[in-house]
Design a protein around this nucleic acid. Structure first.
Lengths: 211, 211
DNA sequence: ACCATTGTTGATCGTGCGATCAACAAGAGA
DNA sequence: TCTCTTGTTGATCGCACGATCAACAATGGT
């Protein structure tokens, strides 16, 4: 019975090992949160001595910050990809609201919330958070501006409205993190609110009942 | 030069000492966050040995949880008090939105956000968080229901809409925590969105320019 | 003036953290 | 086959945390 005591980790190329470490960090963050990103935790997951993780990272602040950026940027790009397949701004805005509120990404939401707090004591992370928030805001702003051009929306300050919608989505998601029950059709309520903000026709953003 | 080495703390009644400790905890939480609530931190602020803090608290989880509840409940009651002085539901809802977004309570917002994360690993805190969120929701729900009765609003599910508005406010506040700049008139944007959600007349919730 | 009560101390234990580094060993090039 | 490069180990340091508890000392009742 040797089970899994594992004598010594096989020797790998720096690039490969570095990738293993960042991947392990990603998994740990999604499962247990950014706070669980410790040298020993990551090392154990990779199956390696803690010193090796330290050897591949300048310090833990950096690993936390880059792990956050990796996870969150992937989500942004995924959704932006979906957006690009839709023809009208109304459909795009509708998809944004629906998709972001469908509770399928609560693990990422948890990381956002944790990062807002951790950023107070980790300057690198704080910078990452601002950067990723800007990226999200730009996605929303693009959709709003498109709708303005089309005439579907009527917004004087697209940037401000984009920030606003983003904030609302974040808040509702954070709420779902703690209180999953209570409210069901959050999407349609938010859609109605957003209609008011962007000056869209009433009902134009409310999700269709599964076409 | 004796500066402040302080030989021994004066002997006080249990009630008095307990009050000192909870007050110190409150201050620390508001200034540095719930994470900074450690035995040694609190003890140092009171000017007392760390063991004494432990003696007055079952454990630190409990102190964190009760400190959160103290801070947050005070805010809820403060705002609820202001509300009760206004005659119409529209004015009350308008005050809620304006006041909660005026950036004068960012320290409390930071504690909310921190509690959402810490609640994952502190069950007592998680229970406190749910309790205090319910309290806030009830405040919003009451205003919405009043507006329904008056005819100022037209909402089918007041509870759901209340949760929704609360979530939006939380999100926008959390956003302000990280990105203070960017958006100025968040209040009026949100007001317009809320008008759409509660079916209020357009403009009826937008803050008047200082009467 | 004494003493029993009790508020208070501070050292101590075990744990976990980030960081460091001399020593080791696997593997590629000669 | 030998050697040298370099990926890897694991012990170690200093620190901070929560918790515990025997010893201490201030105080009020007698």
């Amino acid at each position: 019975m040797s089970s899994t005591p594992q004598k010594r980790a096989v020797r790998k190329s720096p690039a490969e090992r570095a990738a293993e470490i960042t991947e392990a960090a990603r998994e740990i963050a999604l499962e247990t949160g950014l706070t669980a990103l410790t040298l020993r935790n990551v090392a154990a997951r990779v199956g390696v001595a803690s010193g090796l993780v330290a050897h591949y990272q300048p310090n833990m602040e950096a690993l936390v910050s880059s792990t956050f950026a990796t996870i969150v940027a992937a989500e942004t790009q995924e959704i932006a990809g979906l957006l690009s397949q839709l023809p009208t701004p109304s459909e795009r805005l509708s998809l944004l609201v629906d998709t972001l509120l469908d509770n399928s990404r609560l693990d990422v939401t948890a990381i956002w919330v944790e990062a807002w707090t951790l950023g107070r004591r980790n300057e690198a992370l704080a910078a990452s958070v601002r950067e990723q928030m800007d990226a999200w805001q730009k996605v929303f702003q693009g959709v709003v501006e498109d709708g303005n051009a089309t005439g579907a929306f009527n917004v004087s300050d697209a940037a401000a409205v984009a920030w606003q919608i983003l904030g609302m989505v974040d808040g509702l998601n954070a709420q779902a993190l703690v209180r999953w029950d209570g409210v069901n059709d959050r999407g349609s309520h938010l859609a109605r609110a957003v209609e008011g903000m962007v000056g869209a026709a009433p009902g134009s953003l409310v999700a269709k009942p599964a076409q």
